Amino acid sequence: MLIRFNKPYGVLSQFTPEGRWHGLKDYIDLPGVYVAGRLDADSEGLLLLTDDGQQQARIAEPRFKMEKTYLVQVEGEPDEPALAQLRRGVMLNDGPTLLARAQRVECPADLWPRTPPIRERKNIPTAWIELVIREGRNRQVRRMTAAVGLPTLRLIRTAIGPYSLEGLTTGHWKEVPF
């Protein structure tokens, strides 16, 4: 069994809540499924769950290098040199990142509002970037955008390999064939 879940902001990638964060049990009541990969509580979007240990490893293990696609709202205006640096890889405190795909995109018309909303500063514009990576270090996308001078305000994972958020509203899940 494979489950696609559109994880809301404020939900951990585990079933048990901790502190101010909710757990998956508030949304998914299926015994025997486990998260394949992580998504921070302050990030939103696609989370995959499965009851198959081999499938979980194929999705979550960095050695399989399954592409992950993110929609990132950043503070500032991404210019071509910043995007090119993201594509080439940036140096983080735990070493350089692999090559990535990065492009500026428009905010999707069907994007749900985040609760709570992001902070907006009147004098600083925001923009959206689509970033595709093949690794999954702790808070990697946020650290990558910060390294090129574009702090992340909102982070939404839209796809993992062939699986996407298509047709899923925030807080809902659907079983899919694998």
Rank of each mutant, 00 (worst) to 15 (best):
A82K: 11
Q54V: 09
V11F: 00
A41T: 00
M66R: 06
Q14S: 14
E18Y: 10
S43G: 05
K68Q: 12
L71E: 10
M66S: 02
A100T: 10
K65G: 11
G76H: 09
R58S: 05
L24C: 03
A60C: 04
T69R: 15
P8Q: 04
V35H: 04
W21F: 03
L30G: 06
R63F: 08
A100C: 15
Q14Y: 13
N93L: 12
E67Y: 07
D52T: 06
Q73T: 03
A102C: 07
G23W: 00
R88I: 09
Q55F: 12
D52E: 10
V90W: 11
R63E: 12
Q55M: 15
E77K: 04
E61D: 09
D26K: 03
I59A: 01
L86I: 14
P81R: 07
T97C: 09
L49H: 06
A36D: 07
V74M: 04
E44L: 03
G53Y: 00
E67H: 14
Y9F: 14
K25Y: 08
L49S: 05
P81S: 07
Q73I: 01
L92V: 10
L12Q: 02
R63P: 02
E18K: 15
L46R: 11
D79N: 13
L92D: 01
D94Y: 09
L83S: 09
D79Q: 06
E44S: 04
L83M: 13
L46K: 08
A60Q: 08
Y9M: 14
Q56N: 05
